[in-house]
Design a protein around this nucleic acid. Sequence first.
DNA 1: GTTAAAGTCTAGTAATTTAGTCGGGTATTG
DNA 2: CAATACCCGACTAAATTACTAGACTTTAAC
Lengths: 158, 158
Amino acid sequence: MKLSTRGRYGLRAMFDLAMNQSQGPVPLNEIAGRQNISESYLEQLFAIMRKAGLVKSVRGAYGGYLLGAPSDKIYIGQILRTLEGNIAPADCVSNEDAPECLDADACVTRMIWEKIRDSINQVVDSITLEDMVRQQKKIDHENYKKGIENNSAIQCNG
Amino acid sequence: MKLSTRGRYGLRAMFDLAMNQSQGPVPLNEIAGRQNISESYLEQLFAIMRKAGLVKSVRGAYGGYLLGAPSDKIYIGQILRTLEGNIAPADCVSNEDAPECLDADACVTRMIWEKIRDSINQVVDSITLEDMVRQQKKIDHENYKKGIENNSAIQCNG
DNA sequence: GTTAAAGTCTAGTAATTTAGTCGGGTATTG
DNA sequence: CAATACCCGACTAAATTACTAGACTTTAAC
């Protein structure tokens, strides 16, 4: 029941991008360095996200990536679904290659999976990248007042 | 972000047991047959659940398995956690082999994983096997009134 | 126009996990 | 004592994951 690295790295990378794109396009090697993720692996993830419109690319020297929309319009559910496919605990409630059950309306187990699926989606579709940025700035500010060094570059390995 | 067959088969098997244990111990081959799951694979799952106290076994001829507690005391969260390990979208919020983050309190991404984890657990820890049994009986009764044949033996492949 | 910094694209592959199978036990009962 | 059923550990095939490699294209600056 874990997300794969695709979803986890992808969200961290998008959050990094949201925090750092004010100066213009952010090259992948910077994100890869800060987040400690292989650059060539990130390339693949960004290719997928670019096709989905989540990021825009600027080619050539001094190029890089920009968010495809304002950060308060990008929900983390969009990111996770783009990279992981539909988020669901079982195929029969995923709407993708949905191998329809024989008697879905009467399947109580299926109803459980639906509830889990819906509760996950409710969480990820209520949080935007902007929410994360605001939260990070709040933490940094509180730590600054306490005299704690800013460690916000250090991310979870999650 | 899928559950493995351990959790899915396990829940289906436990639900099956809850529906059928009124006549005494239920042998695995019956559950395996009804749920279309390999009997030897089910053996492994039941061994794990027996050690966790979720089921009791009765050996010998006419033996089989019984629930380890009344069905309204067995939450599906217990079943899933026993078979799958802690339910969490990322290792850093799983409390298991938790490789603690460098600066967990300041990691916004981690907070997202916590929210997802908590929302899943809230669902699975609020539903008991008895809830599922009641729901199934309700469906069967409604279908009976409508003159629809009872298909409750047919389970999702989920 | 050359060069260096970037993104683009396609394959391939090593490691890990999953989802079982297999074969032999041991306990209990009719 | 034979049938039934749980118990246990080792093994394995298939799938998925998490990358890596390398060739190519685009653009800015000199």
